[in-house]
């Protein structure tokens, strides 16, 4: 399957954006573990993993935006808003799509933060807890997106007849 095929196929776009987002969020969990160990090698891994996490979350943002513009707005949104579960779009999707905008920004911020402390294992003045908190927030928001996405797809299925 080519990249253009993925970008135009609903069956690839939905799992691809979810997978990129989940793996990207998990990357920041990995980063926390590496940083908490306070080893030089762990810090180097944390730098690369946080860069990978940012790239994955940015990719997820791009794929989900493509899905949102090509499929969701034209089809799924109309289905949900036409049924009894319109709140799934009006509350859940509206919240999801706007929080999603600043997750890649937070991921880039976290990567640049980690890059800023080359003496991670030896310098005791590094604000470790606040950096962990940013990473935890990225993980929480990333998996929050997954949960909200599940509610939206469940609402669409239920509106179309349920049990699908």
């Amino acid at each position: 399957m080519s990249i253009s095929g993925i970008l135009t196929s609903l069956h690839w776009l939905v799992p691809a954006h979810a997978a990129a987002g989940e793996i990207g969020a998990l990357a920041f969990l990995w980063v926390i573990i590496e940083l908490a160990n306070r080893q030089d090698r762990g810090y180097i891994r944390a730098k690369w993993v946080s860069l990978g996490g940012f790239i994955l979350l940015f990719t997820s943002w791009f794929l989900s935006g493509t899905y949102y513009l090509t499929h969701y707005g034209n089809v799924v949104k109309q289905v949900i808003k036409g049924g009894n579960l319109a709140w799934a779009h009006n509350i859940i999707m509206e919240t999801k799509e706007h929080i999603f905008i600043f997750i890649p920004i937070l991921a880039l911020f976290a990567f640049l933060l980690i890059l800023s402390f080359p003496k991670w294992s030896t310098n005791n003045k590094i604000p470790r807890r606040s950096i962990y908190a940013i990473c935890i927030l990225i993980v929480a928001l990333g998996f929050g997106m997954v949960g909200l996405g599940y509610i939206i797809s469940a609402a669409a299925r239920a509106t179309l007849g349920g049990g699908v």
């Binding site: 937070l106 933060l113 604000p127 606040s130 908190a133 940013i134 927030l137």
Partner: peptide, 10 residues
């Protein structure tokens, strides 16, 4: 004051 700024972002 790095911690203060990072917590503010959080």
């Amino acid at each position: 004051n790095s911690a203060k700024y990072i917590w503010s972002t959080f």
